[in-house]
Design a protein around this nucleic acid. Structure first.
Lengths: 168, 168
DNA sequence: CTTGGAATGTCAACAAGGCTGACATAAATT
DNA sequence: AATTTATGTCAGCCTTGTTGACATTCCAAG
């Protein structure tokens, strides 16, 4: 188009200037701190960390999931996950059952105590998210999700979408 | 209101259901991985980590900033920041000047090499962010920012806003 | 002007949680 | 029977968070 560099084009693409993008980057950085702040506090009290939260969250989301599945979602090594999982199992928050279909697999479930901690963590995190959602309004929330989905890596989007469907 | 639990209310508040919120939480988790993936790869090649990226980013954003200022923004202990800063200074990416007004302070600047790495990192990160922004559209971007701003802790929002103003 | 406290930065040591590599075991598959 | 797959474990490394101890510098109260 002849006037693609004209003022009209500049105006419609203002959200793509380096400055706008940089603001988006910092927004992401600062918001993620807030996003994890409340669970982090609770976890610190119990001697756990963010890694434990992630494991608990995804075991709760899909009870009976296997170690391998969890590895793919969390994107860490089995050694790293194993250390976290071991403490959760030893502390009686997670139950690991030998798979029935394939007995090499371990199916992971939250125990009652694990579910209790999960509720405590997700309540804190949801409260903040809910407040942010309410304050921003429904259309902002839709935009928020659209941008985040476009920002994911393909693999991660697959895991995200699979969940969205299963819970539609 | 009498009909606050009626179907109309349910519909307008659908974005506040536990399910919607949980999707927001997972979107945040998966998107943050994508957000840091590209810089992480570059940094790993050079033997640096995310902490170095953060320091470089904020020194670039406000040249001459003090260590104390950086501490407040990054939300880590001075000892932790110092280690990262030390390697950056030793490697000639950051210059630390004794403050003129107050000689206890150190004013931090990127060297030419530091600025070059900063450009490499921010280009990678901006490219992904720009693609996500373009794909989602301007209204989604506005919503994205509104939700993220509402999600920040007060302190962090202050740091975020201060920057937004200074770069208006 | 001196002295005590506050601010700032550095050094040392430790912990969490990533990583790699090597290896064992059991079960499924070919 | 041999191979592949899923899982677990040991050992060791790195980054990046933490505390504690300490040096330097500034400022303000006496």
């Amino acid at each position: 188009m002849a006037e693609s560099a004209g003022p009209a084009a500049d105006e419609t693409l203002l959200f793509l200037t380096d400055d706008q993008i940089r603001k988006g980057i910092e927004a992401m950085f600062f918001a993620y701190r807030g996003f994890t702040a409340d669970p982090d506090r609770i976890l610190a009290d119990q001697g756990y960390g963010r890694a434990h939260h992630r494991a608990i969250h995804f075991i709760n989301r899909s009870p009976g999931t296997t170690v391998n599945n969890l590895l793919a979602i969390l994107g860490v090594t089995k050694q790293s996950l194993n250390r976290v999982l071991r403490t959760l199992i030893d502390d009686g928050l997670v139950r690991s059952e030998v798979g029935t279909r394939d007995r090499r697999e371990r199916n992971l479930y939250l125990t009652e105590a694990g579910a209790a901690l999960e509720r405590e963590l997700s309540t804190a995190q949801r409260d903040r998210m809910r407040a942010a959602f309410r304050q921003a309004g429904p259309e902002a929330v839709a935009g928020f999700r659209r941008v985040l989905e476009a920002m994911m890596d393909g693999d991660m989007r697959r895991h995200y979408m699979r969940f969205r469907e299963s819970e539609s």
